[in-house]
Computed example of a mutant assay.
Amino acid sequence: MVTVRQKPDFSLERAAWAAGDVPVAGVDEVGRGPWAGPVVACAVVLDPDRVPEGLDDSKKLSAARREALFEAICATAEVSLAFAPPARIDGHNIRQATLWALARACAGLPRAPRLLLVDGNDLPPVPCAARTIIGGDAIVASIAAASIVAKVTRDRLMASLGLAHPGYGFERHMGYGTPEHQTALAELGVCRHHRKTFAPVRARLGV
């Protein structure tokens, strides 16, 4: 038997619109695990009449497909981004910094959502109704769109940091704890974009 994986669809959003919860937004983040760079959060309100085809969890898409969908989403939807920099992550912990960024992304939308669909099981502090959905980026179109925009935005940012800080390889590993990054950290030390409370970076600082 061949199992066909379900792709994200717009059914939850359509039900919310039918119930009067207009607009409904999806929100997701990228970058909780890396040793360097920000957490990037994105909130998206899709146009029911112009939902881009091929939306999916950003991790399941090729870089080229993510880029194409990024352009399509930004051209047809309401989009808001927020960034939790390393200083906030170090000052508040990764969970609190992530929830702050998710709430900021929601607050930055052109229209305040009546309902927020959140990937995962942790609700950000928002003034509207919200629903958590584990694995939402693989189920809900708006969350998938948010994951794509957040991923492309963060990858572009890390590529620019790679140019500004040659030798770290940020443009390749995006700040994650790869062997290349570990070697660079040992040889070059900690830069201002590293998360100093994360164990490998803290160890390099001798704290």
Rank of each mutant, 00 (worst) to 15 (best):
D90K: 13
A112D: 08
V51D: 00
P85T: 12
S58E: 12
R95M: 15
K59P: 11
P48N: 04
A87G: 08
P86W: 10
C42M: 08
V24R: 01
Q96T: 14
S62R: 14
D57G: 11
D28I: 06
G108V: 01
W17K: 00
L46C: 01
A107H: 05
L115F: 13
C106M: 14
A41M: 09
D47Q: 00
P38E: 10
R95C: 08
A87S: 10
P34E: 04
R66E: 07
D47N: 10
G20L: 10
E29C: 13
W100E: 09
L46G: 03
L117A: 04
L116A: 13
A36D: 12
V51L: 05
P113Y: 08
S80K: 13
A107V: 04
D47G: 01
G26C: 03
P48K: 01
V24H: 04
F83R: 11
C42G: 09
A36I: 04
P52S: 14
R111I: 01
P85D: 09
L116K: 10
R104W: 10
T98I: 15
A36L: 07
E78C: 10
R114A: 14
R104E: 13
A105L: 15
A103Q: 02
D47F: 00
F83V: 09
D28Y: 03
I89H: 14
R65M: 07
P110F: 00
R50P: 00
W17G: 01
L46W: 00
G20D: 03
R111F: 00
P23A: 06
L81E: 04
L109M: 03
D90E: 15
L117N: 11
E78V: 06
L46N: 02
D90P: 09
A68K: 12
G31M: 04
T98P: 09
I73D: 02
Q96E: 11
R114M: 08
P38Y: 06
G91H: 06
D90C: 13
E67Y: 03
A97K: 10
D56G: 11
C106Y: 03
A101K: 01
T98E: 12
G54F: 05
A63L: 13
A16K: 07
A105S: 08
S58F: 07
V51R: 03
P38L: 15
I89R: 06
V79I: 14
R88S: 15
V22Q: 05
A72L: 11
V24T: 14
